[in-house]
């Protein structure tokens, strides 16, 4: 097994908190025929950080750079959990017990039948993959985001 298979490419974009900025990003993605699989927006008064997981991260990255957006690539983990009460809580307890630091997380809706998918940015992704696999946690691979 290659632990790199579990690293999902995430693209982050800096946007100013101004009318139309978010739209410009999505327009660029549409033009390069990239489909957004999951996203989150962290915002402040002045600026926001958009984070995406997409079917074609390379195309997305190149087209955004081309349009002069400020873009960063990062690896995140996609974890499948039971889509029922307590599902997330159970996972977070394990993560907490394993002493893994989460930098941020967001959800990926409508992914699998009876399951929910959460995206996590860990401080140490390699350590997180190793420990979570030991706990039999279901980690999704990058191909998954190309298919759905």
């Amino acid at each position: 097994m290659d632990i790199n298979d579990y690293k999902i490419t995430q693209i982050s974009v800096f946007i100013e908190n101004k009318k139309g900025r978010f739209y410009n990003v999505t327009k660029t993605l549409k033009e390069s025929k990239v489909n957004i699989r999951a996203m989150s927006l962290a915002d402040t008064m002045d600026f926001g950080i958009l984070r995406f997981v997409m079917d074609k991260p390379k195309d997305a990255y190149d087209s955004l750079i081309e349009k002069d957006f400020i873009v960063k690539k990062n690896d995140v983990l996609a974890i499948a959990i039971k889509d029922e009460s307590g599902g997330l809580s159970e996972l977070l307890k394990i993560i907490s017990d394993l002493d893994l630091n989460i930098e941020y997380m967001y959800t990926f809706v409508n992914a699998l039948e009876n399951k929910a998918v959460m995206l996590f940015k860990f401080e140490d992704i390699d350590l997180a993959i190793e420990k979570l696999l030991d706990e039999n946690i279901e980690l999704l691979k990058e191909e998954f985001f190309k298919r759905v």
Binding site: T44, I49, I70, K72, N74, K121
Partner: peptide, 15 residues
Amino acid sequence: EANANLFFDEMKKQR
């Protein structure tokens, strides 16, 4: 003006 050197994917580091 922001650029890739000044942009951090984490809000905490950005702040």
